[in-house]
């Protein structure tokens, strides 16, 4: 922690960056912090409650943050995948951000939880994580902690969904999606949802029904998850932001599995790795085209 605070203070004092995006203690657990004064760097913390993916704040549309100046951002290895995604998709230049990576021993499901990591409290995305030792960084901090306990609940849910008949699966999703109020919080919290104008907001033609009926909700979520195929970094900020607690991460995990099976691609922290939607490859399977 001291290492992080000292580095942040130095980067700010030297003028290498004008703001450090990190984590601080808030009224309900750990929350995002925007440190612009080196004297305030002591507010920064890093522990298992640092659930949030701060790469979301690097979205160039967020003018009130862009105006602060060049940022340094504190990331876990998994969050770095979003930075790689933003660079890969030409949203930010790699050199426009200083990446401070922290070696990670897993995080909790929610930043306000104050529990030890267990098979129930650990975030589902930490299971099988291959990015605990970050690879995309300008500075790397800490020692590598032991891996966290595995929370397999998400994979169990996926297995349960796969066993269902299509009618049962539709019933499950209709039950979940009937609660959606089309607030689009999932989109706003997502580091990879950066479109200047979302298809959901196109009125001419109106692709997506704007009313939160089951019809509109299905269309919205389906559109979003397909648009995230091979782009989603599985940070589950969408699920955490959802005021209706819809298990949106199931979509993300499912579609990531499909992309890996079909295209041999997994969201990664290498900005140069070509993502399936961004390349033309004659190797792509086409047996489904009849």
């Amino acid at each position: 922690m001291k290492e992080l605070q000292e580095l942040a203070a130095k980067l700010l004092a030297d003028g290498a960056v004008q703001v450090v995006l990190g984590y601080e203690e808030g009224p309900r657990g750990v929350r995002p912090a925007f440190i612009t004064d080196p004297a305030q760097a002591g507010r920064l913390v890093f522990d298992a409650r640092c659930v949030q993916n701060l790469a979301t704040y690097l979205n160039p549309r967020r003018q009130h943050i862009v105006q602060l100046g060049k940022p340094a951002v504190v990331v876990k290895g998994c969050d770095a995948r979003a930075i790689a995604g933003l660079v890969r998709e030409r949203q930010i230049a790699r050199e426009s951000v200083v990446v401070i990576a922290v070696r990670c021993g897993g995080v909790l499901q929610r930043p306000e939880e104050n529990a030890a990591l267990s098979s129930e409290t650990t975030a589902v995305r930490c299971a099988g994580c291959d990015a605990r030792e970050p690879r995309l960084y300008d500075y790397i901090l800490g020692e590598l902690p032991p891996p966290p306990p595995v929370n397999a609940s998400r994979d169990e849910q996926i297995a349960m969904l796969e066993k269902m008949t299509p009618a049962e699966r539709k019933g499950f999703w209709d039950g979940e999606l009937s609660r959606c109020i089309l607030c689009h919080a999932c989109r706003e919290a997502c580091p990879m949802c950066f479109c200047v104008q979302c298809t959901a907001e196109r009125a001419l033609p109106q692709w997506i029904d704007p009313s939160p009926t089951l019809h509109g909700n299905r269309a919205w979520q389906m559109m979003r998850v397909l648009h995230q195929a091979g782009r989603c970094v599985d940070c589950l900020e969408c699920e955490r932001a959802c005021p209706e607690d819809i298990p949106l991460g199931l979509f993300a995990r499912y579609i990531a599995g499909a992309v890996e099976t079909r295209f041999g691609y997994k969201a990664c922290d290498d900005p140069a790795a070509p993502a399936p939607l961004g390349v033309f490859s004659t190797e792509d399977g086409e047996e489904f085209i009849r």
Binding site: P32, F34, T56, H64, I65, C183, A185, E188, A241
Partner: peptide, 16 residues
């Protein structure tokens, strides 16, 4: 300006 920095503009607050 300073208070709004961490706001995602997602509107979940208005829903609940």
């Amino acid at each position: 300006r300073t208070m709004a920095l961490r706001c995602h503009g997602c509107g979940a607050c208005a829903g609940v």
